[in-house]
Design a protein around this nucleic acid. Structure first.
Length: 262
DNA sequence: AATCATCGCAACCGCGAGCCC
DNA sequence: AGGGCTCGCGGTTGCGATGAT
């Protein structure tokens, strides 16, 4: 996509010639050129980018692409509930001063905040009952999905660590048994209950003790019952402070979150 | 399954402020 | 002083993705 623009003063001679500026979505190659240009020359002097970087984009377009998309310090992903409340607060205070609001949200751009506001809150004024409610629920659904993905990743990571830990402990236990049988003691094996607990930081003392003693059937589920029975999926919680894993029921959650102790 | 409506977001546009010559 | 250039800001548009009917 091109448009015919005027290159004014590009070569120090006033209006020299017409040229074709590229417009529309940026390609990966254009991004690469721009990133390389900024790496070498730093930010600023955007109008020389086209000349120096071999890009057929005007300075404005280059600056926008860098600021809104390529900058390395940009935060990706959804606006968090905390950020949302900051946006609401600051917008109430300053109105549509997006760049000012953005300065208080590291990694977020004015464009992003502006878009977010328009999408999620502007319609509220027009139709408070319907559109805003839909937008809110959509936001919460997406956020929930995102959190579930994150938790699933954490759980998988934990499982892997657990597996490795169990393998390591097997060695310790066999060594322990071997030493008991032989009536020898090595310092590492002389675990008291407290010492076992210290070796297993993510468990209660009780749990770590049972784990080391081959009994892992104890689960205090009372606290979790409260979570589930009190309506974990209540979408009216606008701040979305959910703490669920990717499980369809309580048992599934246990299987995911507590594959074992630790 | 097809069509239409709505959303989300990247990118563009116009304008004004600040700077330099 | 004023004209030109650069940059940044806020508003708007375009279009692919997604949801509703």
């Amino acid at each position: 996509m091109y448009y015919r623009g005027v290159m004014a003063g590009q070569f120090g001679h006033g209006i020299m010639e017409e040229d074709l500026w590229r417009k529309g979505p940026w390609t990966a190659e254009e991004d690469r050129l721009l990133i390389e240009y900024v790496r070498v020359h730093g930010e600023g002097r955007w109008n020389s980018v086209a000349r120096l970087a071999g890009l057929r984009r005007n300075g404005k377009s280059c600056r926008l692409r860098w600021v809104n998309y390529l900058r390395p310090d940009l935060k990706r992903g959804q606006i968090t509930p905390q950020e949302e409340s900051i946006i609401l607060d600051l917008h109430a205070r300053w109105g549509n001063r997006w760049s000012t609001i953005a300065r208080n949200l590291p990694g977020r751009t004015d464009n992003e905040i502006k878009n977010y506001w328009r999408t999620h809150f502007k319609k509220k004024a027009k139709n408070p009952s319907d559109a805003a409610e839909k937008a809110k629920n959509r936001f919460l659904r997406k956020q929930l999905f995102h959190q579930q993905q994150q938790q699933l990743q954490q759980v998988q990571q934990q499982q892997q660590q657990q597996l490795q830990f169990n393998l390591d402990m097997k060695d310790v236990v066999s060594l322990f048994e071997e030493n008991n049988i032989n009536n020898h003691r090595v310092p590492y094996i002389s675990q008291t209950r407290q010492e076992m607990f210290n070796m297993c930081p993510n468990t209660t003392e009780e749990q770590s003790y049972f784990m080391f003693n081959g009994n892992s059937s104890v689960q205090d589920s009372s606290a979790n019952d409260v979570l589930w029975d009190d309506g974990l999926w209540n979408l009216d919680d606008v701040h979305g402070n959910f703490s669920v894993a990717n499980a369809t029921n309580k048992t599934g959650l246990y299987n995911l979150v507590t594959p074992n102790y630790c």
